[in-house]
Design a protein around this nucleic acid. Structure first.
Ligand SMILES: [Zn+2]
Ligand SMILES: [Zn+2]
Ligand SMILES: [Zn+2]
Ligand SMILES: [Zn+2]
Lengths: 156, 156
DNA sequence: TAAGATGATGCAACCCTTTGTAGTTGCATG
DNA sequence: CATGCAACTACAAAGGGTTGCATCATCTTA
């Protein structure tokens, strides 16, 4: 699976994204091609800075604001998700790759993976009772793991 | 109800917070007194900048980094919550005042209030199945309201 | 192909928040 | 008191991200 959920080669993939962009009156530029590839090829949650590093290897004069703007565009098109995993920078992820969430311990930074099914109930409730289409595709839920919780109890 | 959930006058209230701080080896300074009062007296979700404005009216040389550090301290003590309501700055709120959440439309900025009960189920699930104490006290859940969703459909 | 319109980018400036640090304040102990 | 220690603060600098704007690239239409 790639960024838009069809099985195909990278180049074809990019053509399809180009189509998606074109349908909205947007354009597939070399910068966007590189940025899409960086998110697509990352094994997991990549940051804007990391994407930027990859891009400037080929196009050294690309600006990081272009990276941020492109990522926002991709997020609006629902091709990537933006997630706060508690390390002070936003992480990006292909929207259709490995549906899941994360439980982030504020104390020790531990990250526990959470199946997406855990939130489908609340999503339906919010739609039915509040007429709201909540975006719960890739969340970082912050709190405390039991290990850190026990430590506090022991200290007291 | 005030910042620590007991019915009492402001001055007493501050003494109690002072006690809470003291138990952790921390001190109640004039700066902290002002910051606590600002959060406590705000009718709702106040920003660091707004707190800062109030504080410097009495102590003009207080620095905004002190405001941020104090708010973090209060958040760690679970006396205030930090919430992202999608307007580019964090909002602070007394933790025991009006338990609720917010549904934030990314399109039009509309904010729908959500009863805290809507998330008690998932909180229990996360604790039981994942041994994780999720902090779901005052969330801003982002997504799209039906009005904005209909607009997109109409355009297409 | 020319002209106009719209989208995209680089750059600089800015916004919100965090962090390092040196100096101060307050508490405890002798 | 004097001394020592830990907490606290102001200040400055930096970090992550956004925005305004002039310029550049691409598309449309004639
Ligand atoms: Zn993930
Ligand atoms: Zn932990
Ligand atoms: Zn609220
Ligand atoms: Zn809306």
């Amino acid at each position: 699976m790639n960024l838009f959920g069809r099985k195909q080669k990278q180049t074809e993939a990019h053509n399809h994204i180009a189509d998606d962009l074109s349908q909205k009156g947007l354009r597939m530029t070399p910068q966007r091609l590189m940025i899409v590839a960086a998110v697509e090829n990352s094994t997991n949650h990549i940051s804007a800075e990391e994407i930027y590093e990859q891009v400037i290897e080929k196009y050294p004069n690309v600006n990081i604001s272009t990276v941020y703007r492109t990522l926002d565009t991709l997020a609006e098109m629902r091709l990537v998700t933006k997630t706060d995993l508690g390390d002070g920078r936003v992480r990006y992820h292909p929207a259709d790759k490995g549906h899941h969430h994360h439980l982030v311990c504020r104390e020790c930074g531990a990250i526990i993976d959470l199946d997406e099914k855990a939130l489908t109930g609340i999503q339906a409730t919010l739609l039915r009772d509040y007429n709201f289409i909540a975006d719960l595709r890739h969340l970082g839920i912050s709190g405390k793991c039991v290990k850190c919780n026990r430590q506090v109890v022991r200290e007291t």
